[in-house]
């Protein structure tokens, strides 16, 4: 079963990368882009019986390793 994990900085945590990319887009004339938050994307191939079990497993590895809970939050999608 496939799971996708999206990791981003928590809303209150400063994202210098996203800010710099947004500034660059503005200087290139893309004024319609209001804000950019950068993150990471993971594809997991899981041995899980049900989508719920996959969701639990993906959530666990995101908690333990993929995301740094101090500054990042994550979202899991399962097919």
């Amino acid at each position: 079963m496939k799971a996708r994990v999206f990791v981003t900085l928590k809303p209150s945590v400063f994202d210098p990368q996203g800010q710099t990319i947004a500034d660059a887009l503005h200087s290139m004339g893309y004024d319609g882009v209001q804000d950019v938050r950068q993150g990471k994307y993971f594809e997991l191939d899981l041995d899980a019986a049900t989508p719920d079990a996959a969701r639990v497993l993906a959530g666990e590895v995101a908690d333990k390793l993929l995301a740094n809970p101090v500054i990042e939050s994550y979202r899991v999608e399962v097919d």
Binding site: P16, Q17, T20, I21, A24, S27, M28, Q38
Partner: peptide, 13 residues
């Protein structure tokens, strides 16, 4: 540009 996005990716513009 702090190597943000990808190294050299923003400077090239």
């Amino acid at each position: 540009y702090g190597d943000y996005l990808r190294t050299g990716a923003i400077a090239r513009f």
